[in-house]
Design a protein around this nucleic acid. Sequence first.
DNA 1: AGGATGACATTAC
DNA 2: GGTAATGCCATCC
Length: 128
Amino acid sequence: MRGDYVAAVCAVVAHIPPGRVLSYGDIAELLESGGPRQAGAAIGGAPAGTPWWRVVRADGTLPPVLAGKALSCYLAEGTALVGVSGQDGAAVRRVDMRRARWSPSDSELIRLSALRREVSVPHDEVKA
DNA sequence: AGGATGACATTAC
DNA sequence: GGTAATGCCATCC
C-alpha cells in the first residue's frame, strides 16, 4: 500500500462535503484498512489541495499547530463549532462532532467501497 | 527479527 | 464533562 493508501484517504477526504468533518477512525473504518494512526499519517502525507482540516480527531480537536489554520477553514466553511465553557478566551472552539460528523450517503458509500477496493487490490508491488 | 514512533481511539478515574 | 493511562495498526529505524 503506502502511496495508494494515502491516495485513498485523500479521495475520501476530498469527498467530504463542506461544513462536515470526519474522524481519523472513521476514515480507517470506511477504508476498512489499518487503524486511525495510519489514516492520520496518510493525511499528513497527503498532497496540497487536500482539505485535511475536514478530518479531525474523535474529540473534534486537532493539534495546536493545525488548529489555527483549521479554524479559519471552519469559519469559512461554516462548520459546526462548539465554544468553550467560560474559560478566558482560550479559543478552544473545537468542531462539534455531534453535528459536524459527516454521514456518507448510500451513493457515497458505493463510491467509497469502490475506492477502498482500489486500495485492497493486491497489485504487483510487494513482490519484486 | 525486534523495538520504537505516530495529524488516534477507547476506557477508567 | 474533562483529564490520564493503555491498546491498536502499520510503517520506519
